[in-house]
Design a protein around this nucleic acid. Structure first.
Lengths: 220, 220
DNA sequence: ATCCGCCTCCGCCGGACGGGGGAGGGCGGC
DNA sequence: GCCGCCCTCCCCCGTCCGGCGGAGGCGGAT
């Protein structure tokens, strides 16, 4: 169960104190060995290239090149890249998502206790697991809807116009919408006309398309 | 470093062999204790309610109530719920996403080795970390476009009909489509009629909606 | 050789749609 | 009080749309 060769770790963080602390924690474990350190992203890339560690603990915030970019570069240029664990201070950091995209094997908070840190390193070193804090659940459940900026017209619609557009997007005719909203067909026509004007579209089909692409629908 | 009370684990899997294997692996560790087992999702909920374990290893596929639903129920009903690790056989399982949504603390593959299993249990037991295999990266980067199975009508459309539907989804009129495709307006009308028939819709707006919801568009 | 599916077009018709212009009432702000 | 916004509804009219039925050509399958 004890492995012959220890897990080789590189630390990348611009603060010396952090590196020292991490080294102290990891060195206490017989199966872990800190083989190198880096204070910038650029340095991290070259150090990793030279030392070929099994795991890298990578701070997100670093001079010159940040941890995310350094991660991308390492994974893109090395044949058998190390597992990279991205480390940050704040949980709600948007870096969580960036780290995922960059190909990081894990994401750790600096406030994680020593125990969790050590186990995280061991885990990523030899399994294909990813390791992320609770924040990713938010991203996943909110469907990570990276809204590309909702078009201006959305705010300009009145309440009734919104309702009408919703129904249009269900494929209903004006008459059907009128029945559902318990108003006259002429009223619906007015609202539809207003929607077309504000969305800059010429017919209901284009308006529905605009609604879809604006992410205007509730539970799309 | 050794904790006074062991981590209490409950196993939920409908196959006895799997439970036995898991129990064997976990029992070999002095700091882990398997306190109960369940063969169905419903049983899992009640067992967990009674025994209050620290960690639950939950199979996705189980009779009566599947692992995902069982997870939801446990997390919804208990005040201090255990960390739940969802276990499955296939990595590309859509269950990965469901597990995230349900609030699972981790996701493990049955082919994971004993070492990874044990460490995963230890990790989730006392940190707020989530643990997921590489599959989540795909979900995250592909923006988790959970295709709900492309409707049958997609395959039934002829080449021309597809083209026409694409243009319809751009908000073009029949005349415009005719010009772009360099055919007569009557031809386009025929294709549109065919599209409406095959999609089971009554007008172009509904057809476009169907196209959007089917993920029919190229780079939507 | 025949059949069938696909693409191409035709005419006719009723209904839905969208543009234009207008009108009355309610409600809040200046 | 008056103005402005919103919601409600009205008429007219031209256009687009979709349903109906039909037709010819072309190519692959049997």
């Amino acid at each position: 169960m004890t492995r012959p060769t220890p897990i080789r770790v590189v630390l990348a963080d611009d603060e010396r104190m952090v590196r020292t602390a991490l080294r102290a924690i990891l060195s206490a474990e017989p199966d872990l060995e800190v083989v190198g350190e880096a204070a910038t992203g650029a340095e991290a890339v070259s150090v990793v290239r030279d030392l070929r560690p099994d795991v890298v603990l990578m701070d997100v915030r670093m001079p010159e090149v940040d941890g995310i970019r350094a991660t991308e570069r390492i994974l893109a240029t090395l044949d058998e890249p190390p597992r990279i664990v991205v480390v940050t201070t704040f949980e709600n950091d948007s870096y969580v998502y960036d780290a995922l995209r960059a190909g990081a094997a894990g994401f750790l908070l600096k406030r994680a206790d020593a125990d969790a840190l050590v186990q995280a390193v061991r885990l990523v070193a030899r399994s294909d697991s990813l390791l992320f804090p609770a924040a990713v659940r938010t991203l996943a459940t909110e469907h990570a809807r990276a809204r590309p900026a909702p078009p201006a017209w959305v705010a300009k619609l009145t309440g009734r116009e919104r309702e009408v557009l919703q129904q249009m997007a269900q494929g209903l005719t004006n008459a059907e919408i009128a029945r559902r909203m318990e108003v006259g067909p002429a009223t619906v026509k007015s609202h539809v006309a207003a929607v077309l004007a504000k969305t800059g579209t010429r017919d209901r089909t284009q308006a529905v398309i605009a609604a879809y692409e604006a992410g205007f629908l509730n539970g799309g």
